[in-house]
Write a protein that binds this DNA or RNA. Structure first.
Length: 433
RNA sequence: GUGGCUGUAGCUCAGUUGGUUAGAGCGCCUGACUGUGGCUCAGGAGGCCGGGGGUUCAAGUCCCCUCAGCCACCCCA
């Protein structure tokens, strides 16, 4: 048992797993870049107040899930999501004055003090995009489509793109009144949770899973019946644009997102095979957030995709294995005898300078064991440098895929020769089991 | 934060109604002509049985606490 373990809800990304993570990163990045989004890298922590303002005071995240650090008179919080930071950076660099419409993407760790379970960690990676400065419904469609394209590019199947609108502030206030009037008379009949939700967030009462509450909600008011014409028109155009893009989607009236800043279009990507926590990612429009953070009224929309659920989905679909494993080190130098300790060090460095990835034994292993190490490291060529070779001014170069070995003079073009040997043995070992 | 399940070698797991020196497969190390991998064979190392306390003549096995993971809830990527 190790003395220390990683903090709860965190994990080490060991070398074997890095290629898989990178695969996800690169695939998403490639898709996103195709739509003109540019990467932005804000700090991992912000003034605590930024999240209070953006996410909302009465959200679970702000109330109990923030990693906050107090030093003297400053309080910073490790970001629980990316949007607030991006908007803050947008305003701080005066984009709203110089280049009001911008499209950003980001990737990096987020932090939430939650109880961990499958697909939920306290430090987790998200890839996200934020398009700030336009209310064009075609942009909503683009953003929604990009997320789906990321999943498609990863080879995932069976995910669903669910969209909804939560209207603007007026729409919701109007609807809140309607719902309050609907629920209040029979409040006593609802479950305990719902009676709590009544005061905090009435809308949640409408999608309670308890059977009794479902019965009570059978004739509940429908939001879309109470929205303004502009809200409805926007939502309609979003759907038309999605169809134009060839993006499959379904409307799910129950989508309500966890942050206060969302307006109008909200969406979620779901994959039921993930279990109870079936969301791959989600996002929405946030037309009031820029203003809320002391900028000019500026419409915007974005999403964030959880890397953890993507990894789980890839693993479930059997698409992860091919990306797991330690990156190969194509050239390994086997030394025999103490007399070649320094010559081997020099030779390795010369080969590296010529652009090869080279390693050698630092454990004092026998030649046989060094060969085994080379194999395990997926080396494709071994350079044997022993006392005998050194005396003759040569090295033995053994190709591990063909097993052929040839003697080459030390003063010949060794890097070139090794390159030649590596390139004449294409992909032999990748076809092994 | 609430409830439930689980925790034995590096990994995946066996371990009978509590009973002697806790096992297997894989992996790791060594060896099979004192300098040559993969395959095979032989041998070897490696476990405070998650941690702490308790019951008992005796605890990996039973009880309590704690930590961690998983599952569900709240909520959420």
């Amino acid at each position: 048992m190790a003395r220390y373990s990683a903090p709860r809800g965190t994990q080490d990304l060991l070398p074997e797993r890095i290629p898989l993570i990178d695969h996800v990163f690169w695939t998403c990045q490639e898709v996103i870049a195709g739509y003109g989004y540019l990467e932005i890298r804000p700090p991992l922590f912000e003034d605590t107040s930024l999240f209070h303002r953006s996410i909302g005071e009465v959200t679970d995240i702000v109330e109990k899930e923030m990693f906050t650090c107090q030093r003297a008179d400053t309080s910073v919080t490790f970001r629980p999501e990316g949007t607030a930071s991006v908007v803050r950076a947008y305003l701080e660099s005066n984009q709203h004055k110089t280049r009001p419409f911008r499209k950003f993407w980001y990737i990096g760790p987020m932090f939430r003090f939650e109880r961990p379970q499958r697909g939920r960690e306290r430090q987790f990676y998200q890839v996200g995009i934020e398009a700030i400065g336009s209310h064009d419904p075609r942009l909503d469609a683009e953003v929604i489509h990009i997320g789906a394209q990321c999943y498609k590019a990863l080879g995932l199947k069976g995910y669903r793109t669910c969209i909804n609108t939560i209207g603007d502030h007026d729409d919701r206030e109007r609807f809140r009144e309607v719902v309050l009037k609907f629920v209040e008379p029979k409040l006593a009949e609802y479950c305990e949770d719902c009676r709590g939700r009544f005061g905090r967030n009435v809308f949640r009462v409408l999608d309670c899973k308890v059977r009794g509450c479902r019965e009570l909600n059978r004739d509940a008011p429908v939001f879309l019946d109470h929205v303004s014409d502009t809200t409805r028109a926007h939502f309609d155009e979003v759907q038309q644009s999605l169809n134009a893009l060839g993006c499959d989607f379904e409307v799910d009236k129950r989508i309500v997102r966890g942050f206060d800043y969302y307006t109008h279009t909200v969406f979620e990507y779901r994959l039921s095979s993930l279990g109870a926590r079936d969301a791959l990612g989600g996002g929405g429009r946030y037309n009031n957030l820029v203003e809320e953070l002391d900028g000019p009224p500026t419409p915007a929309i974005g999403f964030s995709l959880g890397v953890t659920p993507m990894l789980l989905a890839l693993e479930d679909a059997g698409l992860a294995a091919e990306h797991l494993g330690e990156p190969e080190c194509p050239v390994f130098i086997v030394t025999i005898g103490d007399g070649v300790r320094l010559p081997a060090l020099i030779l390795a460095e010369e080969l590296r300078c010529a652009g090869l990835r080279v390693d050698l034994d630092y454990e004092g292993k026998s030649p046989k064991a060094q060969m085994r190490s080379a194999s395990k490291r997926l080396a494709r060529a071994v350079v044997v440098l022993g006392e005998d070779e050194r005396a003759q001014g040569i090295v033995q170069v053994k190709c591990l895929t063909t097993g052929k070995q040839e003697a080459l003079p030390m003063d010949s073009d060794l890097p070139g020769e090794i390159q030649r040997i590596l390139s004449t043995t294409p992909e032999a070992e990748t076809t092994q089991p």
